[in-house]
Design a protein around this nucleic acid. Structure first.
Lengths: 144, 144
DNA sequence: CCAGTCGTAACAGTTATTGTTGCAACAGAC
DNA sequence: GTCTGTTGCAACAATAACTGTTACGACTGG
């Protein structure tokens, strides 16, 4: 599985913005978040753009521009973030259609499809059980 | 998520060998399996090689060579297959270490790590609940 | 010795992710 | 009205993983 870090970075960004706003600031810049995540501001803007499309954050342009939360961290779950930044399914089918003349080739795809759907459903349920507020609290509780 | 088809193809191969053996044959060739899965025999041999390392199948060389199950399909679960063919974790951390001077940068990795471990544990449990015999029966029950 | 199959290395094509540069668009400050 | 700092976005390179393919040595029953 060639795992990516999109969910991790997106959660990082949201926790960062949330904490920054609680410290009295209105907006956070992609530059600041990128420094914390040790990556490029464009990477952050790309991810936050997807979170904006999902209604999780808002952006302002012009001078004093930046990003702010569109709702409270308590009302955002990792499932919201996952759905915003992870398009595809967890497991893929065959890249070419298996031999439909063969009993196994014919039945394998519907069978695996059903199994995978059940697993993704469980994954979603799991992700829905963690709010970004949970994440931030856990982060703040990490011993120095 | 750049999903791959390794678990799907591996399950396909195991179901195929299992059915073929029930039809009275001793061994299946990578060529036969590849025809059913509509792929290249080397792809099958690579995957079956990993399954052999995990103790799920055996191979014979020489004339009349091929692959056979090392245990009954009833005793093999998708978790066994998953662990044999999927090395990495589901979600990745940051590719570079986040800023340890930042509260969020410092706490985010242990936090996400814990969350991801819980999710993978659930995934394993789910996969462990499906045997390859379940898969084969479901395949055979697929309407033509 | 022969034939058929595995075992494995090597390489190409494709795709996704991440990082990077560059620049237009925008909006507040002066 | 211009300046300034930021977003929005396109384009591209580097890297990595997966899949498919070719090639050929190793093995073993006949």
């Amino acid at each position: 599985m060639s795992a990516n870090s999109r969910l991790t970075i997106a959660a990082h960004a949201l926790a960062w913005i949330g904490l920054y706003q609680r410290q009295g600031h209105e907006v956070a810049t992609s530059e600041q978040i990128a420094t914390s995540a040790n990556t490029n501001p464009v990477v952050i803007r790309r991810l936050l753009g997807e979170l904006r499309r999902a209604g999780l954050v808002e952006s302002r342009r012009g001078v004093g521009a930046g990003w702010s939360l569109a709702r409270e961290l308590e009302s955002m779950t990792l499932l919201d973030v996952y759905e915003a930044v992870e398009p595809g399914p967890l497991f893929a089918m065959h890249r070419t259609t298996p031999d439909q003349e063969c009993v196994v080739g014919h039945g394998i795809q519907p069978t695996m499809q059903r199994i995978y759907e059940g697993i993704e459903q469980t994954l979603r349920h799991e992700l829905a059980g963690v709010t970004l507020e949970n994440v931030l609290q856990d982060v703040l509780a990490t011993p120095r």
